Computed example of a mutant assay.
Amino acid sequence: MRTTIHLRPLPRYEPPFDDELAPQVWSPPRQQLALDWSTPTPAPSPPPRSGPPAAEVPGASGDAKLAVRRFVHLSVEVLNGFRPAGHLRRLSLPSHAADVVAAGLAGAQWVGQLRRAKRTRRPAPVAVLKVHLCEPRAGAVEAAVVLVTGERTWALALRMELHQQAWVATALRLI
C-alpha cells in the first residue's frame, strides 16, 4: 500500500512591521514579589600570594582537538585502505607533505602485510583506542594515538601547526 502525499500551498504571511504593532502594556498582579535589580558589591580580593606564579594547566584548544581528530580519522581510513595515502597531502604543510604521505603509505603497506599474514576472510580494521594531546605552545599541537588491529597494538605520533588560519600536519610517525 502506498501512502499519498499531498502538497498544499503555504499561505502568504509577512510579519507586521514595528510601527504596526500595538504597544503591549503589562500590569503586574498586586501580590507579585518585586525583583531586586540593584548591582551587587564586588567581593574583596584576596591578599597577594608570595612565591612563583601558578603554572598554566596543559591541554589543547578546541580547534586543535578538532584538527587532530579530523587528521587521525583520515589517517585511519588510509591505514584501513579506504583512502589513498595521497589524501594526507591536503592536510599537510606543503614543505612536509612528502614525508607525511610517505609515512601514511608505509603504515598502510604494513597493515596490508599483517592482514595477508593472517589470511582471514574479514580482517580486523585499524581502530583508535586512545588519543593523548599536548599543546606545547600556541599554534602547535602534538598527539600520540594508540591504535589496534586484531591482536596488535601500535602507536601513531603526529604534530600539527597552525599556518594561515589552518591546522596542517608537519610530522607523522608510526611506531
Rank of each mutant, 00 (worst) to 15 (best):
Ala34Tyr: 03
Val111Pro: 07
Val72Ser: 07
Thr149Gln: 15
Thr41Phe: 11
Arg115Thr: 06
Val72Tyr: 11
Arg137Ser: 11
Ala143Gln: 04
His73Ser: 14
Gly139Trp: 14
Arg30Leu: 09
Ala143Ser: 15
Leu172Arg: 05
Pro94Arg: 08
Trp110Gln: 11
Pro123Glu: 08
Leu174Pro: 01
His163Asp: 08
Arg173Cys: 08
Arg69Gly: 14
Pro84Met: 03
Val78Ala: 05
Val111Ser: 02
Ala97His: 01
Trp110Asp: 12
Met160His: 02
Ala106His: 09
Gln165His: 11
Pro42Asn: 10
Ala43Asp: 13
Ala85Phe: 09
Lys130Ile: 00
Gln113Val: 15
Arg173Ser: 07
Ser61Glu: 10
Arg137Gly: 03
Val141Lys: 02
Ala140Asp: 02
Arg152Trp: 04
Ala64Tyr: 05
Trp26Cys: 00
Gln109Thr: 12
Arg173Thr: 15
Trp167Pro: 06
Pro125Phe: 12
Glu20Asn: 01
Glu161Phe: 11
Trp110Phe: 09
Trp154His: 14
Leu10Gln: 07
Glu161Gly: 00
Ala169Gly: 07
Pro84Asn: 04
Arg122Gly: 01
Ala55His: 02
Val148Ile: 09
Ser45Tyr: 01
Ala108Glu: 12
Ser61Pro: 04
Ser45Arg: 10
His96Pro: 00
Trp37Lys: 00
Arg83Ser: 09
Ser27Asn: 02
Arg116Asn: 01
Leu162Ile: 05
Leu21Trp: 02
Val131Lys: 04
Leu91Arg: 05
Arg83Trp: 11
Val101Ile: 03
Val128Gln: 03
Pro15Met: 01
